[in-house]
Nucleic acid binder design. Structure first.
Lengths: 330, 330
DNA sequence: TTCTTTTTTGCAAACGTTTGCGATAATGTT
DNA sequence: AACATTATCGCAAACGTTTGCAAAAAAGAA
């Protein structure tokens, strides 16, 4: 293994001091032009690469931001991470990814890891079981800003960024009504999740206000299988002319039931979902959806975190808007 | 911001030396039991957390492994990362994720970043344009083992781990033949990719050996849309009784065409794919597939890298086997 | 007691960088 | 010529930890 070159090596070769070399390499005005030139050349030649540890130890700050998610795979978080990485890299940051596996204890351990590594900031999609915010407070007190995204706690203590769930719910109902689909089977996720409640409330409210003459059935499913089962039974008789799915997972289940009944879209039944976009694009015809882009959320989250890292913490909840993507399924 | 506690703080409070405290905390046999006790208690009280930078600077090694992929999102890599993270965490490592965006230059920059951060090891799914292996050699020479996965270069210089592509191709053809599907439309990806060629060769060879009486059409598609187009046209007449897709992306396109023709699966046409498993589970009936699990590949990759990090580098190419998952679509 | 052995602790250097401040040399000003 | 100014550069401390070695204290052996 070739031993790495350091500032010291360069300094010795050039009969300069370490500090001069250090300054030369970062274009400090105190250093003469020709000196800088020579230093840069030798650094190039020796393939000098600064030791990040030393820099970080000295400056007590890293260019790494921690990301804690329940799971990387699945329907959503990977696109979030992709968007985040993109934005972070353009600012010179890189990502340290930790999965909590939906276990609050693992979450706390991951948080500790971020602290030990002096992460510049942390983004957290908390587990559903996260009740104790103390670990987050401790992290924040240590000077590492914490921003929650997607799965956010009730507390108003931390900045949060999430999808505009109410807007998405509204958009869903509004779109269906505008298209004349008023006999709706609407499928939502676990009622315990705030994301479900927000989407549901807006959807239901909008429907009641603008389609009092219609018929709305709300059902909750906790898995793809359950969604499929519910949809299959509900669609047995002809009462509905549209299915609404509040998430990709539920859409997948509903679509299976629809395909099982061999219903044509959009002739026999209209379909609309809130989705990231990947799943709706797999069917024929493609499914219209209200986009909740993981990429966008990722980029936006970085912006918020970046503000927190630089100056005053902008508290409050930030929403990234949803937009309707029409594919003709409704 | 609360200033963090250090070994020094603890030492002063207890009128001990820094080295004693350091040793006490790592249960060094030289330290008296009662001293350890007191140190541990105070450390607990002061919420002492070691400074990873200092440790890493001192030991010149980190517990971070770098992962460079063309993209995080998409059909495959996120599940790889998920599996990898799982395995890595159980060994005390965490992941630094970098996207190359399929750009060799970004790839090289990311590599440099890993070097600066003295990653314990690096896993790379190279870009399709990666020709110059010099950056990888330099990294390896610096004592950071590099292991390629999935998209691996021809060079025999680095250990590689990838899916058993030949096996998957064989399994595909064999399964179809066993089920009596011998009029096959087989869809493959870009012929320039080695993964395509390997799968194709095995598929084609197996077919010719065991179903000389059948009829096999090979087509190549470079996108979902193209796969759809090709499938739609090919399926216009009744010559085929099975479609084979070598990847998720292609399966998605093929399925659209099949749905467009309103063909029943498996009555009108059989479908089989090589896949990660997510996509085939979205249709009704679900699609049988030869599993190329990203999770498994991730775990296996870590194992190989872990060997590289500890002792002799096990050169060569490691394959993770594929298994058939039957769902009744063929 | 005196010497040896063992147990327990401290000293100090090292890891590679940044940075305030002082030193020197070059230049300009009167 | 004497002084003030500016342009360059080096010294040394600091960041928090690990670790070889020496020192001190305690214990045992003679």
């Amino acid at each position: 293994m070739k031993s790495r070159s350091t500032l010291k090596h360069i300094a010795e070769h050039l009969h300069l001091s370490i500090s001069t070399v250090s300054r030369a390499l970062k274009d400090h005005p105190d250093i003469a032009a020709h000196t800088k030139q020579k230093v840069r050349e030798l650094a190039e030649l020796l393939e000098y690469e600064p030791n990040a540890f030393a820099i970080q130890l000295r400056t007590n700050a890293s260019k790494v931001i921690g990301v804690i998610v329940p799971e990387i795979s699945g329907y959503f978080y990977h696109s979030f991470i992709a968007g985040l990485e993109d934005e972070a890299r353009s600012w010179g940051y890189s990502l340290m990814i930790l999965q909590s596996g939906n276990d609050p204890e693992v979450e706390a351990a991951n948080l500790r890891l971020c602290r030990m590594n002096r992460a510049a900031g942390i983004l957290v999609a908390s587990t559903s079981g996260t009740k104790d915010l103390a670990p987050f407070e401790r992290t924040d007190a240590a000077g590492i800003p914490v921003v929650f995204f997607d799965k956010v706690p009730e507390s108003r203590q931390f900045p949060k960024v999430s999808m505009a769930d109410a807007e998405a719910g509204f958009l869903g109902a509004d779109t269906l009504i505008r298209k004349g689909r008023k006999r709706i089977l609407a499928l939502f996720g676990d009622h315990a999740l705030s994301i479900t409640r927000k989407r549901l409330k807006a959807f239901q409210g909008t429907f009641q206000r603008h389609a009092a003459d219609g018929h709305l059935t709300i059902r909750h499913a906790r898995s793809q299988q359950e969604a499929r089962q519910i949809t299959f039974e509900a669609l047995a008789d002809q009462t509905y002319n549209a299915v609404f799915a509040m998430s990709d997972e539920i859409l997948a289940g509903a679509m299976k039931a629809i395909m099982q009944h061999r219903l044509r879209i959009p002739e026999d039944i209209g379909v609309l979902a809130i989705s990231t976009g990947l799943i709706p694009g797999l069917y024929e015809p493609e499914i219209s959806y209200i986009e909740t882009s993981g990429e966008t959320l990722g980029k936006r989250s970085f912006e918020i975190l970046h503000k927190c890292m630089s100056k005053a913490t902008p508290l409050g909840e930030f929403l990234v808007p949803s937009t309707l993507v029409e594919k003709g399924s409704v």
